[in-house]
Every structure is written in C-alpha cells, then in structure tokens.
Design a protein around this nucleic acid. Structure first.
Lengths: 337, 337
DNA sequence: TGACATTATGACACCGGTGTCAGCTTGGGA
DNA sequence: TCCCAAGCTGACACCGGTGTCATAATGTCA
C-alpha cells in the first residue's frame, strides 16, 4: 500500500499538483469538469492531504494550545471537552499544556511552547484569562488568542465568559430568601478573576436585601478542596455560627460539608451550604450541593471556534460574549429553622 | 524580527545546512570546532528548529494520540498528566481523542484520526487497552502503540499495568479481616478488563479465607456514579443486608455511600464501604473511602516513554511491566459490630 | 472578425528540515 | 613518500503541500 500524495492524485487525474491543490482548498478558477474529475480521484485513491506538508507551506501547525493551572480537574475536563469539539469541527488539534501560573519562568515557558510547537493560537483559561502580562506578551508577538471566563470584556480580542457576578448574586439571594442573614463566604484563588466577581455578587445581594455585611464571615480560600477544609474550620468555629455558607466553588463547599458532617452538624438543618460551578461532586455527595451551573463547555467551544476563524481571516474581529449562569437547587440549602 | 531557520544559521556560521542538521541531531562526523561554532550561533540567533519541517522530512508528526472512553474524569486527568510528563521530556505533543468504544465506526474513526493527524503512536487507555480488534488493526497498520492498564501481558508490545487482581484481593481481605462475611460486590463496565480482574481478586480473597461466595451479593455496574446508585439500591434492599460493600471503583462506592446515608444508615457502623482507584472523591467525602491506590500517572508515563523510544528505534522491544497497587484505609470501613 | 478581458491551467520556486552521496582532508602504515 | 581508510563537509534531491506568475483557452463586445 503506497502513500497517496498530491502528486499521485495529480498524475492519476492527469492534472497538475496546483490544480489538485485548488480543488482541495475550494479555490475558484477550476472548471466544473476538472473539479469533478479530481474529486472522483480523491475517492478512488482514498486521498487525505498531509497536514504537516500543508503546515510547512503555510507556516501553520493546525494546533491550538490550551494552557491551564487549575486545581479543579473537573473544570479542566470540561474546558477540554468544549475545546475539542471546536477543534474537531475545524480539523484542528488541541495541545494541552498545564503550567505554573506563579513561577518567574511562565512567560519564557510559554514562549518556549510557542517556539517549539508552532501553535496557531492559544486558549487562555482561568487564571490565565486575566493575566495581563501574558496577554500583552501575546499581543506584541501577534499570537492569536482567546480568553475563557475572563472577568471583563474590555478589549478587541476574543473573550467568552459567563456571568459570575450575577450567579453569585442569585445564589446569595436564594439563601437570603430562605431566611438566612448570617451567610459566610469563602473566596477563591486571588489569581482568578472569578474570585472577585463572585465576591461582588455576594456583596450586591446582601446590599440589595438589606443584610448587613460582616467581614468576619469572609474566608480566603484558593478553590482547592484543601483550602476549603481550612476555611470551613474557621467558619464552623465562629460564635454565633453562621446559618449558611457560600463557597466560591463546589470543592470548597464539599469540604465544608465534610467537616460539618464530621462535627455532627446536620446539613441543611443546622447549616446550609452552597457552592459554585456544578462540578460532578455537587451531585455525588449527600446532601447534594445547591450551586450555580456555568456553560463551561459551551463557553470554551465558542471561544475556540472564533479563535480558529480569526486565524484563517486575521482581520481584527472582536468577539465578546457573556453567557448566563443558572441556579441549581439541591438538598444542601433549606429554610432557616 | 525575521524568522531564524536552518538556512540563516548555516550562512551565519559559514557552514552548510546539512552540517547544522548534523549538530542539531547529535550526529557523528562533525569536528569539535565546527560543532562549537554552530552551537554558539544557535545561542546567538536563538534558534529553534521547526518541528513541522522536520516532520515533513521524516514523515513524523511528533504527536502521540491518547484515546479514551471512560466515565471517570479523574482517571482521564491522571492519564493525561502522566502522558504529558513523558511527552514533554521528549519534545512530543499529546493529542487527546475521546471516542465511543461501542459505535460501529470506531475503527474507521481511529483510522481517520491516524490519517488526518499523522500520529506517530497511540496510547490505549482502558477500555481500549484490551480491545483486540483495535490492537490487531494497529498491528497490521504497523502503528506503534502502548497499552495502559491492560489485563494481561501476553504479547510483544508495550504494556504497563498495575495489579488489579491483587489490589482487589487485598481490599477484600481487609474487609474479611474486619470480621465481614457478607460482602457485596459491584462490578465495573464489562468492556474494561479491570472489571474481571477485580472480581477475580474478590473471589480469591473469599476463597482464601473460607468465606462462602454468594452470587446474590454481586451487582453489575459500569464504573459510572449513576450505575453505582442503581447497584446500591439493590444491595441495600437485600435481607439480610450485607455488612460491607466493595465497589469496583470510587465513584460507585461514593454512590453507595450517598444512598446509604440518605437511608439513615451509618457508615461504617451499619455498613462498611470500600472502593478502588483512590479517586479524589474518596477523600472529599465523609467518611473517606477505603480504597486501592494505583500509580496511574506513573504507569502512563512509563508507557508513553517507552512508546516514544520505540518510535525512534523501531526494533521490536517488548516492555511489559506490572506495578503494585496499594491499600489505603480511611473511615468508610470498620470492624463489624 | 479582431481585440481584449476573463477564466482555467500548469511550471516552478519555496517552506525548513533530512537523506544520499561524492569529494576533500587527514593520519597511519607500508 | 605513497596509498588508502576514516573523518569531515557540502551539493543536491526530496518530503507534500501552497504561492506566484506566465500562458493557454474561452468569452465578450465593437
């Protein structure tokens, strides 16, 4: 079984390479008869163009990079799912690149990645979506990029987000509606812009409903389960104990639930717990977590689709979209007793 | 800023392209003086070879594909971590390709993938690791592949596994040691070879310790949380109720725990629960799950490293290794009352 | 019917590497 | 001193596509 290349197709069809190339790329100026003939040969010879050769000629790799530094594995999985969907539709590949947000070497690490892999574009997921230094670097290097779940839509680039502030507002409002007035809050990782957004939503809900803000009820977390345990300890030790806890993601909420249960507290009877993200764990534990569902796959898919479009036609075409988040109530929150 | 290519390096250093290529690939027959000179120019010009051009010349893509169809996201994440580690060390990229194990189109789907992406090799993760049809296909196509967590080491290929049977034996033995004699078992997905292995370990432990096997205690699951819920329902409805449940993975074990808790059963006082895999959820819930930890990252890393080696030097070099699994006891199992 | 615009096609260079092979240096042994 | 093997180097083709430009074929209009 010999390799089928553009040359074999050309000679078999009795046309030049270039004509075959034209047919391949749906270029104009090919007569219908010739196009038909070549297409038929494609079928007969079962021809697939070699993306590497094409990449060399066009100085493209047909690979999109996705960088992340996120403690939430389920979030990453969802991002990958969305990105893969977009890539598959456009015959792109996805290169995943976990890296360390903090290290000094970050920028040079990314530069290295771009150099060696010749990526056509980069998807920035939290916390990189709002990492100004990196974004500026990509801008000057003219590397196409798209941002997922960035806090703000402030530039001419591609950015798809969901409304974290509004989500946090709604879930806090839900707790207030259940009669809670002492609602603890666990913040996320300071590098993530979502952290501030979710906190803002919490504050706005308190204010809207005339609930006094109490800064002793706020704990610093970092989105990891472990940090949730620490925060939970502080919160459960408070006297009077808050009647509800809103953690900035489900892992930390799960940690609160675990510690509360260990301490013989009944959830939601003794304390209500709410999370954020609708991670799998939110429905894998008892009681299930009330949380906010974000369309992570959809966000990422849109971002990557637009990114690939912008690679093909590099006019500056901003695409800035905010998708809605949705409250999901489960058993972990209830009317105050 | 102009692109730095092998040509610029060559003319700058005053040697031929080929000599630069020799230095790049550490080939012999380059004088030390020349080598030094070229290496210096590499630094000065900050040269990085273009993997696409190299790929075209050598008919390689420097991309490894990883295919999976696994309900356990955390397992996939761990596989990716291991595979990425090996890839990064060898300047390879990882292409992830979720696909449907059952569909008729599987083989042609994979064929399509290989055609369009020109992968250099494939990592088969469960359930594909033991999918004979696919393995045979790859063999005839002479596509290098490595198998992760396959049930058996029976051929001349690359295969890294951990000892599922022994792990299941140990955890069952642990339960027997705690006084349990009525131990329910939830099987995994029939397509996964681990399913049978774990069941065998369970049986062997019963036999070794003279515990009568009772087939009514065995439920069919499929590794998903949801299937765990169904199995849990049947098991908890049994009279007399078993005093322990061993689920073939942690998600199903978590489902048993959730249902038991919903039904006001105390774990482990009323019923002990054990899982398998040491997934994150095993320590994120209360009580934490007693389980078997497998070196998934390490397995995958070894497999991919060997795979890349075998691509570079395609002599038939089997690499068949079994790593050990480890019992982790947490709060979900206890002495029978 | 002739002049000219438009469409269709192919020859050829090029992308940035690697493989082959020939030619030039060296050094060691006869 | 001469010969030959081994070491070093470069010229050139090649991998499989795409871009540029010249040319051939066709159509249009006066």
């Amino acid at each position: 079984m010999k390799k089928v290349t553009i040359n074999s197709v050309a000679s078999y069809a009795g046309v030049s390479k270039k004509t075959v190339s034209r047919v391949l790329n749906n270029e104009p100026n090919v007569s219908d008869a010739t196009r038909e003939k070549v297409l038929k040969v494609f079928k007969e010879l079962d021809y697939t163009p070699n993306p590497i050769a094409r990449g060399l000629a066009q100085n493209r790799s047909f690979i999109i990079g996705c960088i992340y530094d996120n403690p939430s594995k389920s979030y990453i999985t969802r991002v990958q799912t969305g990105a893969l969907a977009a890539c598959q539709e456009n015959n792109y590949n996805l290169l995943i690149h976990p890296c360390d947000m903090r290290g000094d070497a970050l920028i040079s690490n990314i530069e290295q990645l771009l150099q060696t892999s010749r990526l056509d574009g980069l998807v920035l997921t939290p916390p990189f979506s709002d990492f100004k230094e990196l974004v500026d670097f990509l801008k000057t290097k003219k590397i196409p990029y798209a941002r997922v779940a960035s806090a703000v839509l402030d530039d001419e680039s591609i950015s798809v987000r969901s409304n974290d502030e509004q989500g946090a507002f709604e879930i806090t409002e839900h707790l207030i509606g259940l009669g809670h007035r002492s609602i603890a809050f666990i913040k996320g990782h300071p590098d993530h812009s979502a952290t501030e957004q979710r906190f803002k939503g919490y504050l706005r809900a308190l204010e809207t409903h005339g609930v006094q803000f109490n800064e002793r009820l706020v704990e610093e977390g970092n989105f990891s389960y472990h940090s949730g345990v620490d925060s939970a300890r502080s919160i459960l030790d408070l006297t009077p104990r808050p009647t509800a806890v809103f953690a900035s993601n489900d892992y930390m909420a799960a940690a609160v639930l675990k510690l509360a249960t260990q301490r013989q507290l009944k959830v939601p009877d003794d304390i209500s717990i709410a999370g954020f993200d609708n991670a799998p764990i939110a429905r894998h534990i008892w009681p299930g977590l009330t949380t906010i569902a974000q369309p992570v796959e959809d966000m990422t898919k849109q971002a990557v689709t637009k990114l690939i479009e912008s690679i093909a036609q590099p006019e500056e075409k901003p695409y800035q979209v905010t998708l809605e988040a949705r409250l999901i109530t489960r058993e972990s929150t209830a009317q105050i007793k």
